[in-house]
Design a protein around this nucleic acid. Structure first.
Lengths: 327, 327
DNA sequence: CCTAGCACTCTTTTTTCTCGATTGCTAAAT
DNA sequence: ATTTAGCAATCGAGAAAAAAGAGTGCTAGG
């Protein structure tokens, strides 16, 4: 158990180190506390023995360890109030009704990346509640058609479809059959339904049924995919812990990794903080993430920065966004 | 005028420097040529006086100047044959008929960025030949509608539209009027036509005409925008000329600059090479670009890398892509 | 016109030295 | 039983010095 004074010292070291990124010495602390530097040093030694602080070399000041950050985050962190500018900037995005949710998320996290200098990740998945509303087809050339898929919650996707030697009438017949048979189907069940309910029927009524079926099947499998975007990558360059080209390469490649989101995703619905080795992205970063869920979409938003991160601010910004969109 | 031997030496220095990024000394050259290092040194001095070579310090080997690269590109560069792997990789993209042209471009330049370690830029603009084929509207909630715009060449765009207190009937009436009046209009003339031909008509027949007109106007103005993407940014990190965090910041911010494409675009239709100060992006890079034009799209594709760039390879890769997409 | 030889220049790398910050420990003070 | 003052010891950062190496320009002779 930590004494009140130890907690105070730990907190001051974390806050100071987050601000200045330089190991914190006993002098700086004892100025603010009413005791001598020797006393502080003794306490620091104890905190180090408990694994909450570290030294960069034998005679350096102290730096919080991952465990130290963890203790700070769990016990010492104070809530942060968004300031007017932050709220104002974010509201311009939330109030723009022309935007789809995925755009709202991207833009608001762009803002957050801007004001915090961290990097954001958005994973947006269409909710299973989306049901097929209609498909339509527009011929572009004799062999290419555009298929437009619309769901009842307002998602629109389109894809080129190639068919060879199929008359437009046959295509239209197929479209009508598909519309008749699977309108109202949740998007993640379309593939199955297409195979077991639509395929037999068009096999019966449509001439080049095989080619048409395959073409539509391809279109629908492509459409239900997830959408991941990483915002504010360049902010990585601003942090001195990454002030080294080979480390930069490393981090950038991890941010571009297709599996990035799998390293972040998790079922938990709160705001979660993964410090250093607690996350799977990179041991030198902290990931703060939360999931969101609306009637139309669900997904994850995350902020990635150095372990020396402005924890309270990021947590509260994420919380604000989550509440706004779920809202 | 350069002698044959001088041209040879210049070419060897450029090729060697492109390969190894180290100033080239007389010894390396005289091994390949049948003459002593002193002779080579004399020639190098002449080339330096002509401004084709530079030294990094008094007693260093030589490095090509911008003028040197220019001479190489204009007079000495040999054509490069794409190898099988390159052709194969690119063909998988060109043969994928499900993709729209803009996706084809993005993916093929991703491949090029991958194999060359440079960064690519794609600007894709819908051709003016695109004519409005139809618009349709899908209600999502009582106040939000999705507007889908389709052109005869197969472009599909959609946008959310917000209207308040407008009945669906009025919306449908408006859609029908718009379709009747402006189907067939080239996309870049839609805004004007909307204002002068549609506005008066709906003002007459539709109740909340002002709100509806404004909503549709917003949708259409958003839709005709250009589409720029930058591919393979991380490759910047691979080049030793940018092996410095502050230079990296600089270049990355230039690649993210909204005006990037204006610094590259130009009317000329060949493959153009802008070395160092010849381009407006950054004096330390070379930009190789070309324009393309198909019946549906037009735009620019460009490769950005250090001045010490694999000129012949990049030129021929770009040329290959251009020919493929222009058909 | 070409080349061998050599002094000179400048970078790179290694080594040495100094300075300052901060610590841990001990002994005295509260 | 804490707290504090004092002090030697440790280590990093940075400056200065030294050594090694690569390449040049120039001169004189082939």
């Amino acid at each position: 158990m930590l004494t009140k004074r130890q907690e105070n010292i730990l907190k001051m070291i974390v806050v100071e180190y987050i601000k200045l990124a330089k190991p914190v010495g006993s002098k700086l602390i004892c100025d603010k506390l009413n005791c001598s530097s020797a006393t502080v040093r003794n306490e620091m030694m104890q905190l180090e023995e408990m694994g909450l602080l570290e030294k960069t070399h034998t005679s350096s000041g102290r730096v919080p360890s991952e465990k130290g950050y963890r203790y700070y985050v769990d016990n010492l962190m104070e809530p942060y109030e968004l300031n007017n500018e932050e709220v104002y900037k974010l509201q311009t995005v939330f109030n723009n009704s022309q935007l789809e949710l995925s755009d709202v998320l991207n833009r608001s996290l762009e803002i957050i990346s801007d004001i915090t200098s961290y990097t954001s990740v958005v994973l947006d998945t269409k909710s299973h509640d989306n049901k097929l509303k209609e498909i339509s087809v527009v011929p572009v050339s004799s062999e290419i058609l555009v298929v437009i898929v619309v769901t009842d919650l307002g998602y629109v996707e389109h894809k080129n479809m190639e068919v060879q030697g199929v008359s437009l009438d046959e295509v239209k017949k197929t479209v009508k059959l598909i519309n008749d048979l699977i309108v109202g189907t949740p998007i993640d069940e379309i593939s199955a339904k297409l195979e077991f309910e639509v395929k037999p029927v068009i096999a019966k009524y449509v001439k080049q049924h095989e080619m048409l079926y395959n073409a539509f099947y391809d279109v629908f499998t492509d459409i239900s995919s997830k959408n991941v975007s990483v915002v504010g990558k360049n902010n990585i360059l601003k942090h001195q812990e990454f002030n080294d080209v080979s480390k930069l390469k490393d981090i950038f490649s991890k941010l571009d990794d297709k599996n990035l989101i799998e390293n972040i995703e998790e079922s938990n619905n709160d705001i979660n903080i993964y410090i250093g080795h607690e996350n799977k992205v990179d041991p030198d970063v902290t990931v703060i993430k939360t999931n969101y869920k609306t009637s139309k979409d669900e997904g994850t938003i995350a902020i990635i920065g150095p372990k020396r991160m402005d924890y309270d601010r990021v947590v509260n910004l994420l919380d604000y966004i989550k509440k706004q969109i779920e809202g």
